[in-house]
């Protein structure tokens, strides 16, 4: 009886375990193994930690790592802060609340790669409408996506555009969980809007903020789409991210071993963040 139930359970799991095994776990292990080989098309030569030591002295990797960290460090707090601000504005009685919520969320359901084409047009250094407006406001945008100092900020802006509405929805859900009477009590005690935010909203949103911050950082570390469409990592690799570098080395230059080592650096960074998230959130009862 017990054996039969076990067999039934694994029959339910079998299709998933086969797909996971063949197309997820095996490639992951393959990738880890490849990262110890100097390997292109063909069997390759074992080099131990050679690829990893090579990374430390490879400007292409160091630049991509720096770009990725810069992107994440800039885009994450901006997106999260905007999301919180918009959620606070939309919480409670707002005329047109449904419209604003849907409009702000819309970027989350459309293809970033496709919208990035429109953004590239709007931000074109010669004929772009947004470039024209920015110059009108006295902002020096130089040569736009062709300008090493400006291009990264454009990519950050587009990334924030894509994700802020998504995080806003999570904050709206978080705000729903704060009992109204806390605000009433604070108001009776003479707290103004800023104090109510500082003493009630912010501390009670702590978990939401932590959660949103981590998923935003993980998403930012995997930035690729708008880079591919708007800059292809240029000018002179100034906007190349780790994922873009994996794509270029692994899938254009076919340096499978070296690209795998780069990918595992990314795995390590993301895994540490995810683990922090899971440890943090398993310590309290998560309500899914």
């Amino acid at each position: 009886m017990r054996a039969r139930r076990t067999a039934t359970a694994y029959a339910f799991l079998a299709p998933t375990l086969i797909v996971v095994g063949v197309f997820m776990v095996w490639p992951m292990l393959q990738s880890l193994a490849d990262s110890f080989y100097d390997k292109s098309i063909g069997p390759g030569i074992f080099v131990g930690l050679g690829n990893y030591t090579k990374l430390l002295g490879d400007p292409a990797f160091l630049i991509a790592l720096r770009n990725t960290v810069f992107y994440a460090v800039a885009a994450t707090p901006v997106a999260v802060a905007l999301a919180l601000g918009l959620a606070l504005l939309l919480n409670g009685h707002v005329r047109g609340r449904g419209f604003f919520r849907s409009a702000l969320f819309l970027p989350s359901v459309v293809s970033l790669g496709v919208v990035a084409i429109a953004w590239k047009f709007l931000l074109d250094p010669d004929i772009g409408l947004v470039t024209y407006w920015l110059r009108g406001l006295g902002v020096d945008v130089g040569d736009g996506v062709r300008d090493a100092d400006v291009a990264m900020w454009y990519l950050i802006g587009v990334g924030v555009w894509k994700n802020a509405g998504f995080y806003m929805v999570m904050y709206l859900a978080g705000l729903q969980t704060i009992p109204r009477m806390y605000y009433e009590a604070a108001t009776i005690d003479g707290a103004g809007p800023w104090q109510r935010f500082r003493k009630v909203t912010w501390p009670l949103l702590g978990h939401t903020t932590m959660f949103v911050f981590i998923i935003a950082a993980i998403a930012a570390l995997q930035v690729f789409d708008q880079i591919f469409v708007m800059t292809r990592g240029g000018p002179h690799f100034a906007t190349e991210s780790l994922v873009y570098l994996v794509y270029r080395k692994g899938l254009q230059d076919f340096e499978f071993g070296y690209a795998s080592a780069i990918a595992w650096v990314l795995v390590l960074i993301v895994f540490v963040l995810s683990l922090a998230q899971n440890v943090f959130f398993s310590r309290r009862a998560v309500r899914f």
Binding site: M28, G250, A259, A263, V270, F271, S274, N278
Partner: peptide, 24 residues
Amino acid sequence: AVFVLILLLLMIPPQVTLVPLFQL
């Protein structure tokens, strides 16, 4: 064990499998 495997897969950036998947 199966559940932990699923959770682990959630934590790993999917791009890491691209290169070996391309070979496969």
